[in-house]
């Protein structure tokens, strides 16, 4: 206390507005600490950061060897598919399950009462998903280049990674939706209902049975993959115009994000 005599504990100028730089700093701090705490959570970081690369190397490189030998384009397609796999997990689980747990703990009530700038908490979760997507993509690119199974140029790698990082956002929005509506104990189950079928039925790694093919378009993972392949100019496996896929992803983000925000604003 004595040490503080110089500094006032109370700021009575209640009409003073917050400088813009400090507002931006608040967004930054929120995103920084959201990412930091996820990295510190081993149950989350290990499966979602370290698993995709070995999975890719095993299934997408070793086991797919003969298929790639027959058609080299398959290697590129598999790399893109496993990249989508790598970014989905952190976005869906990292956002959805933590949000549900934090709601259970009453933490969200506190967050709403604090004068955090509008949406800082939700934006932080989205940015966290993108940070994790970025780290996952770096590891995937290292693995992809090392395995040499892709036909991508450096700029194509870059475009693909950029789309994948942005592609974490719609999954984060779905995560927000799940987290906003379910309890902490139910959230992992609901997330898996979206995650596992979405992974397989979007045709990222394996050819789909004929009757399921038209249905691939309902999964956001399909559209992330299509946007990435289309934007990177891989025409062989581009089934839908990248602009349409991107529009679908934006729609998914708006709808699920909007529903989540609506719910959180009312119920906390």
């Amino acid at each position: 206390m004595q040490a503080l005599s110089s500094s006032s504990l109370v700021d009575l100028q209640t009409s003073a507005a917050m400088p813009l730089m400090r507002v931006l700093r608040a967004y930054g701090a929120e995103a920084k600490y959201e990412s930091l705490r996820m990295l510190r959570s081993p149950a989350f970081a290990i499966p979602f950061l370290l698993l995709p690369v070995p999975v890719y190397l095993f299934f997408g490189v070793m086991l797919a060897g003969p298929a790639v030998a027959k058609n080299p384009g398959v290697g590129t397609y598999l790399f893109s598919g496993f990249s989508a796999f790598a970014i989905m997990g952190p976005a869906l689980f990292g956002v959805g399950c933590t949000l549900a747990l934090e709601r259970d703990a009453g933490f969200l009530k506190l967050k709403r009462a604090w004068p955090a700038p509008g949406g800082a908490y939700l934006i932080a979760k989205m940015l966290m998903a993108m940070v994790f997507a970025g780290m996952a993509m770096i590891m995937m690119i290292v693995a992809g280049v090392a395995a040499g199974h892709t036909q991508l140029s450096a700029s194509q790698f870059f475009i693909l990674a950029a789309v994948m990082i942005a592609g974490a956002v719609p999954f984060a929005a779905i995560g927000l939706f799940i987290g906003a509506y379910t309890s902490g104990s139910a959230a992992p189950a609901f997330t898996n209902i979206v995650y596992l079928p979405g992974l397989w039925l979007s045709g990222l790694f394996i050819p789909l049975p004929k009757f399921l093919e038209p249905w691939a378009v309902i999964w956001p993972a399909f559209h992330v993959n299509q946007t990435a392949l289309g934007a990177a100019g891989v025409s062989e496996f581009s089934f839908v115009a990248p602009a349409i896929s991107a529009a679908v992803l934006i729609g998914v983000t708006v709808v699920f994000g909007g529903l989540a925000i609506r719910r959180l604003a009312r119920h906390g």
Binding site: D11, A16, A17, M18, P19, R22, R25, A26, G28, A29, E30, Y33, L36, R37, M38, R40, S41, E102, A105, G106, F107, K109, L110, A113, W114, P115, A116, P117
Partner: peptide, 27 residues
């Protein structure tokens, strides 16, 4: 504010929690 029954982010350290919360305020 200080509310009843709230769980703060368990992975963050005390110093970090203070830094984060302080960032919401003007001064």
């Amino acid at each position: 504010l200080m509310m009843q029954e709230v769980g703060l982010t368990p992975e963050l350290r005390v110093r970090e929690l203070i830094e984060l919360t302080a960032s919401y305020y003007p001064a």
